[in-house]
Design a protein around this nucleic acid. Structure first.
Length: 561
RNA sequence: UGGGGUGUAGCCAAGUGGUAAGGCACCGGAUUUUGAUUCCGGCAUUCCCAGGUUCGAAUCCUGGCACCCCAGCCA
């Protein structure tokens, strides 16, 4: 059996490395990967790429993937982030089963390994200040100079390390440093710091520790503890691989992980930096971490992006070492593809324009059948009420319309989807000259949307009944930034580049009554308008919809300036 | 006069010495009760540049060029 509908994950250089290793007889127990977020912020679509890679590889190669909280910095981390990360990982569709870990749970073992390094003369307690260490590190082109404490006797370092752990010293007074090479061309090998004193409460270990290991020391060893075979990280860690390997070489471990780096992803008109996302939230430039304009997973979820669409996006962009600057259309195309197939259709009028059908009997109401999906009969149908007064969208009418305008105009006939053909007979203006109402006639023979005489109409409009429609608030979201790469020009503050039209709230929309029962997060295609989902703030008495993405619009695109 | 990495179409990306996949975007055209979807067709004589090796090079060699990352007691 070959299921052609199931998309095959395209190959990439990491898969090829693994395949080749397996071909050489390695990994007979399966591969092990890990997704290692620091709980100091919310996950975004860049993390989704990493999760798809790590969990995806584990799945495809009969392996396991750990969700490991890389929590070695008590000042920046908190349990709220741990919870939101777990929620997002689950939502995206990944299952860590019993492999939820914390680097902080390895602190005792890490401490022992640090002692081993000291005992072997591979690490020493340095009592220089942070500024002094920085000053002696050298520069990119000049070697550093050795710390005077580099020759400190092992016994003394051991004793000091023990006292550091016991809390005898204030923050910043000593650090533990690896003893490697201050003249190394790679700055990360110039006696990097591996432990610092921090009298802070840790979200997981409380006050048990006042010394904390650094990432560069913790990560390879956490990988080794978990039996990780492939430690996949982003390109900026490539320089640190020699240190990653150094740690593994100089401490007694039984499993040997391998670090492989791949490139980060950037999305046009967006930013992915955790720090800058935090800034947007803190400065109230957006409504919160789950603002639908943000590339956070919680934001995308609220916007109506589905896990399937995001996972598909990740496989489409691939995994390489090239810098990826992805156009927004790639992501948009992924949701459209999913929602086109799976979102039921509904009628909603964004900007209502009232029509009175003069030859339709006063007080009459008809039930008409509408398909919930034009290409999928399994999604069934619904009854919609039609009567003498309806709303259409204001942009579906033009008083002086060009020939190519296939919608309503004076004297022109269009189809009301699933209802009747109508012809505009007159236009009513208010005292200021604005169009306030249309008068039309209908063809009773065209019930359901087809005329027995075979007459064709060019346009088909969506509509709702005035007396049955519900009021709704619609939040129309657009790209958060005006510039494709808001960080490209470093002389400009990216906050100044926020798109002022990134959120437009319409409070006067009208939707078909069946929508009152839709639960939060439920997606619909509002026919001819776009894909929308029910916002968590929505209630039956105050419906709120978020626009996920517009429908592709070849007419509108052509006619935009 | 440091180290590490990357250059294939507008944006991604396969390609691993045998004559440039695929997706997005774009441009046609067909079908359509959504100007949607779907469908069909077009879209790199050339792979950052210049030399070289070879019957044959995006792939190998040499030399350039461009861009990204690194000087936290952050991750």
């Amino acid at each position: 059996m070959n299921d052609t509908s199931k998309s095959v994950t395209p190959t990439n250089f990491i898969r090829q490395i693994i395949e080749s290793e397996i071909a050489h007889g390695c990994h007979t127990d399966g591969i092990v990967t890990r997704f290692p977020p620091e709980p100091n912020g919310h996950l975004h679509i860049g993390h989704a790429k990493s999760m798809c890679l790590n969990f995806g590889l584990a799945e495809d190669f009969a392996g396991r993937c750990f969700l490991r909280f890389d929590d070695t910095n008590p000042d920046k981390e908190s349990p709220e982030y741990v919870e939101s990360i777990k929620t997002d990982v689950r939502w995206l569709g990944f299952n860590w089963e019993d492999r939820l870990t914390h680097a902080s749970n390895y602190f005792p073992q890490l401490y022992d390994w640090a002692v081993e390094l000291i005992e072997n003369g591979k690490a020493f307690i340095c009592s220089l200040s942070a500024e002094e260490i920085r000053a002696s590190r050298g520069t990119l082109t000049e070697p550093g100079s050795e710390s005077p404490f580099r020759i400190r006797p092992v016994a003394e370092s051991l004793e000091l390390f023990e006292k550091m752990r016991a809390g005898d010293f204030p923050d910043g007074s000593h650090v533990l440093r690896a003893k490697i090479d201050m003249a190394a061309p790679n700055i990360h090998m110039r006696d990097p710091t591996i432990y610092r004193i921090r009298h802070s409460t840790h979200h997981n270990t409380g006050n048990r520790w006042c010394i904390y290991p650094m990432y560069g020391f913790t990560h390879p060893l956490s990988d080794a503890i978990e039996g990780v075979t492939h430690s996949l990280c982003t390109l900026e860690f490539e320089d640190q691989r020699p240190f990653y390997d150094w740690v593994l070489d100089n401490v007694t471990i039984s499993k040997r992980p391998r670090q492989i780096e791949f490139s980060r992803m950037s999305l046009d008109y967006s930013i992915m930096s955790k720090r800058l996302l935090t800034l947007l939230v803190d400065e109230n430039r957006v409504s919160g971490w789950d603002d639908p304009r943000l590339p956070t997973l919680s934001g995308l979820r609220r916007r109506g992006y589905t896990p399937r669409a995001i996972r598909n996006f990740c496989t489409r962009i691939g995994v390489t070492k090239n810098e990826q600057q992805i156009e927004a259309s790639v992501l948009e195309n992924c949701v459209r593809e999913d929602l086109d197939k799976n979102a039921p259709r509904a009628f909603a009028v964004m900007d209502p324009l009232k029509i009175v059908i003069e030859n339709y009997p006063q007080g009459q109401v008809e039930q008409l059948e509408a398909h919930n999906h034009p290409n999928d009969p399994n999604m069934g149908s619904r009854q919609i009420s039609f009567c003498r007064e309806i709303y259409i969208d204001r942009q579906d009418f033009m008083e002086e319309a060009p020939k190519k305008f296939f919608r309503l105009a004076p004297g022109r006939e269009v189809r009301l989807r699933y209802a009747y053909f109508i012809t505009c007979t007159s236009v009513i203006h208010d005292s200021e000259g604005h169009i306030s109402e249309l008068r039309c006639s209908y063809d009773p023979e065209s019930r359901g949307g087809q005329s027995p005489d075979g007459r064709k109409v060019k346009g088909t409009l969506h509509w709702v009944s005035v007396q049955h429609a519900l009021d709704a608030e619609v939040r129309q979201y657009d790209r958060l930034f005006q510039d494709a790469n808001p960080l490209a020009d470093r002389s400009k503050d990216f906050l100044e580049l926020i798109n002022p039209d990134s959120k437009a709230v319409i409070t006067s929309s009208k939707v078909e009554p069946g929508l009152i029962n839709a639960g939060a997060g439920k997606s619909f295609q509002f026919e001819r308008v776009g894909y929308f989902c029910v916002d968590p703030e929505s209630t039956p008495s105050h419906l709120v919809f978020n626009r996920t993405v517009e429908l592709r619009d070849s007419w509108g695109k052509k006619n935009r300036p």
